[in-house]
């Protein structure tokens, strides 16, 4: 758990804005991320969602798992759609057609939707400075269509379009650093989070939504199906990602960095990677190389958080 200990679980809002009966795989931490983020945002939320696992599992006609106004978009345009919702409703409020109210405008998409296909519209919406929150649910591949690599798939991971083999290490490129791309837009709020640290995740979602202007939240969302791990270990693996320094939890508020969680003892990256099916083929040398790359980025974030 995180800094709040097990006892605060009961203080969390009991209302579920995501209904059961959704069709996510057993142990899906991506839908858990959606559930927790909605708890943090509350009912005054309007969401546009790109296609991907979360859209597919929550809205097979004529059913929906959503208990907030929600619209399904094409892959690339959730940021554009939510920009329109925000501008339109702001104009209607200004003209007195609807009452003044703080509404959370949220666009959500997977890593494929965010780092590849919807990158242009997302950049546009961040640059225009709409008052909205973009949430990237990063399960590190195009999972909904059967585990294809995205630009957010980490080096060394085997996917159906980056298969490991005699002449291939699997994904041979580096994971695109989306949070840093968001930071480069000089928006008021950027943060990384993970469902294995639920209080940190919910607090960040709340803070992001309360910000005036654009906010970006990058959520590592463990996918047992695509990562080839047992479903009951979805929370454990999120924890290992953070504790090994592979996925640092941090916030950048108005350009100022702060590390949200510093693991008391850094665990070896091998503990995070070795038992995942998608990394099964890696040798100790490969694991070493991955650890070195991860530590460089981790140390960079630590330095940015400590410096003024």
């Amino acid at each position: 758990m995180d800094k709040y200990s097990v006892y605060s679980a009961r203080l969390v809002d009991q209302t579920e804005y995501m209904a059961p009966g959704h069709r996510a795989c057993q142990g899906c931490a991506e839908v858990l991320a959606v559930r927790l983020i909605l708890k943090a945002l509350g009912r005054d939320t309007i969401m546009a969602m790109s296609t991907g696992c979360m859209e597919i599992i929550s809205s097979p006609l004529p059913l929906t798992s959503w208990r907030i106004p929600w619209i399904h978009n094409a892959f690339e345009n959730s940021s554009a759609v939510v920009s329109g919702c925000e501008s339109g409703m702001k104009a209607m409020m200004r003209k007195g057609r609807i009452p003044q109210k703080k509404i959370n405008f949220v666009a959500m998409g997977g890593d494929g939707a965010t780092a590849d296909i919807g990158m242009g519209p997302l950049s546009g919406a961040l640059e225009r400075g709409h008052d909205f929150l973009y949430v990237c649910l990063d399960n590190e591949a195009y999972m909904n269509t059967g585990i294809q690599r995205s630009s957010s798939t980490p080096y060394g991971a085997s996917t159906t379009t980056s298969p490991a083999g005699k002449k291939s290490i699997g994904q041979h490129t580096q994971k695109k650093n989306m949070a840093q791309i968001a930071v480069a837009h000089n928006i008021p709020y950027v943060a990384t989070a993970c469902t294995s640290y639920p209080f940190d995740l919910m607090e960040k979602a709340k803070r992001a939504a309360e910000m005036n202007g654009a906010a970006y939240l990058h959520v590592l969302s463990v996918c047992p199906t695509g990562w080839r791990i047992p479903p009951e270990e979805a929370i454990k693996y999120g924890r290992l990602a953070v504790e090994s320094g592979m996925f640092p939890l941090y916030e950048v508020v108005n350009g100022k960095y702060s590390l949200s969680y510093k693991p008391p003892v850094m665990i070896p990256v091998k503990e995070y990677l070795a038992a995942q099916g998608r990394y099964r083929h890696l040798t100790d040398t490969d694991l070493h190389k991955i650890e070195e790359m991860a530590m460089q980025e981790y140390q960079r974030i630590v330095r940015l958080s400590e410096g003024d």
Binding site: A19, H22, T64, S65
Partner: peptide, 30 residues
């Protein structure tokens, strides 16, 4: 939706396939 999901035909879907009943996935027992 009053009807069970397997009895609803496409003609009965709302314009733009808008689902107006919130959280009705509770009909689907996972």
């Amino acid at each position: 939706m009053a009807k069970p999901i397997d009895e609803i035909t496409w003609q009965e879907l709302g314009i733009g396939a808008v689902v107006t009943e919130i959280g009705n996935s509770v009909q689907y027992k996972t």
